[in-house]
Design a protein around this nucleic acid. Structure first.
Lengths: 344, 344
DNA sequence: AGAAGTCATTGCAACGTTGCACGACCTGTG
DNA sequence: CACAGGTCGTGCAACGTTGCAATGACTTCT
């Protein structure tokens, strides 16, 4: 309390290597060193070599606070982490993907978890007004996501995991959900399913709409009955299990099910199994898979994989190019679903 | 290339609210404003009120770069995220826990994913030499973890998720693994198991040793056979499934199993089920559970819960107090395992 | 020989913050 | 009235960086 011994001393002249250190070592001025390190072409080659060598020898790394204060550049990208629990290890995979992509760059990653059920603009507002990052990655994007609107208005670099319906184009990377739904329906049709059901969490993301639309269209084309059970995102696992149980016992039990979430698939399968349904025989189930662990548990089930690690990497690459001023038209990409059909 | 239009302008005098803005507004000097905002007691109450009001009205937030440059304080805590896949959604829960605990503080969270199988000191070295954070949280701590050694030597604030065997005490929060093992063994003994097996990933963490030791001791006391199947952390899910399959068919099949990992439990159960084992009857299985999703899939199995969200919060609170100079002896805590016994 | 270029380097100010040393003003005392 | 001792506020320098204007030393042209 009284004696605050930890003085939080400013990084004094003791250990830290700064431009000044290099200047003193080479006998050049501080400005020259700075200029040289940033690749000043007006400098003599000899000088540049000398500076580079000294910098390397001393292990110089530019001070982030100095750069940031002077230039406004934070060298930080922010990941706004949605609280949704649908994919196993979504956060880890995404973060690893991002981390892998910023290796060797000057960027750091800060993660801001969201707690609300629906994304708020609060976090984004904070980042924008305090210039706390150079760019933002958001996930679980909605069709008219207010966060996107906000960043478009502010002309702030960002990339969304998921598309939107805004007129103004923006950088995004997304899973090709339409293709996912189409693949799944076709697969079920091949397995002679006549009455299928899509179990999906209505979490107001764009993906939700894309999946439902494509699902209906593909089923209609294949001439099979296609129901939708939506709003399952709100259900806690135990209730999701009940859904499976009820479904198993229902007189109009579907013969094919498509599930868009790993977590909900687990609960659903638990309920179906308890209800006496043999998956892969009486009911075929196809689920979206992201973690690689579920196939070991459900080898008898088909799945379609979304690569979250890869998505994290791609989102980062897009964002960094966006920060560097690349045209938006080059910053939009889709990831193709990877079917994992059981081998029989 | 040629025309770099995005000038990355320094946050010019246009919008940004700084001490200067408040100074001009109140007619006080910049120094006074700064002093006042930091609670200078030598100032007249009237002055302090005036400053506070202006700051509030303008929505002043201290510039991180300015503070950091001047004081060396980054207001950042770094989470070194282990690449291990054992708990479902470990990363999300941990990050949410941390995020919740730093709400309302000035701290930001940066996450640094590790890719190597075993933790390297590289990341920590970088943080230490570049003063990139005020404190570090590490997870999956080993008994003589080199990262811990490094930070102890540098007297750098950190907290580990997991204990160590170092002589010098340091801040930690840990799951009470010994208690976990003891609870699990006793439960199996109550269920009349005579020959149990611990399936555990030898991932060189302290927890591993604690669990094995306590497991053996408790089993000996209960007078039952206790085997250990270790080294499962290295196995990919498909092979883990094979382990379950072989175990099911083995002549000396155990009648009780304890598993320390959610992910491996899933694969193991997949294999056991394929091998025709009815869990909860022929074999009792108890697993460490962190995500809340597995019980919906395996309602017939006992589990013991570790609260990762809570751990994230506790780790953060300990770290912040460590940064503020609290004595180490107050910065060590254990989390009690929470048994979830099936209700029959 | 003086003006006008080049070329290579440098000094200075500023970004926003803090902490120290000082200054201005008041009050009471000898 | 001079002066000590408060009370309350302020000027200045520094943290590490960058960008611009300016410098000095050469060369080249007229």
């Amino acid at each position: 309390m009284s004696s605050k011994t930890t003085v939080t001393k400013a990084s004094g002249g003791n250990g830290r290597v700064t431009l000044k250190t290099i200047a003193e070592m080479t006998g050049l001025s501080l400005s020259t060193v700075s200029l040289s390190l940033r690749g000043g072409t007006t400098l003599k080659q000899e000088t540049r070599d000398k500076v580079n060598e000294a910098a390397r020898a001393l292990g110089y790394v530019p001070d982030r606070a100095g750069v940031r204060l002077r230039t406004g550049k934070t060298n930080v990208i922010a990941l706004v982490l949605d609280g949704a629990e649908d994919s196993i290890d979504f956060a880890r995979s995404m973060i690893q993907g991002i981390g892998h992509a910023i290796r060797g760059t000057r960027y750091h990653l800060t993660v801001i978890p969201e707690f609300e059920r629906h994304p708020t603009t609060e976090t984004i507002g904070y980042i924008l007004s305090n210039r706390t990052a150079d760019g933002v990655i958001i996930t679980h994007t909605g069709p008219r996501d207010p966060r996107v609107q906000m960043m478009i208005d502010a002309d702030f670099p960002f990339v969304s995991h998921g598309r939107t319906e805004f007129y103004t184009p923006h950088a995004y990377h997304d899973f090709h959900s339409e293709e996912f739904a189409a693949l799944a329906v076709k697969r079920l049709a091949e397995r002679d399913c006549k009455d299928i059901m899509l179990v999906i969490g209505d979490d107001s993301t764009t993906n939700y709409q894309n999946i439902v639309t494509s699902y209906r269209k593909t089923a209609a084309r294949a001439g099979i009955e296609a129901r939708v059970l939506e709003g399952t995102a709100k259900l806690p696992p135990a209730e999701m299990r009940q859904v499976g149980l009820k479904l198993a016992a229902a007189p109009d039990r579907p013969d094919g099910i498509i599930s868009d979430s790993e977590i909900r698939t687990i609960a659903l399968v638990g309920g179906l199994a308890e209800g006496g349904v043999t998956l892969g025989r009486e009911v075929s189930l196809i689920y979206k898979q992201t973690s690689g662990i579920l196939p070991t548990l459900f080898p008898q089930m088909d799945s379609i994989r979304e690569d979250i690690f890869g998505a994290g990497g791609e989102l980062t690459r897009l964002l960094l190019r966006r920060i560097d001023g690349a045209p938006i038209s080059e910053l939009q990409s889709l990831a193709e679903p990877q079917p994992h059909w059981r081998s029989d």
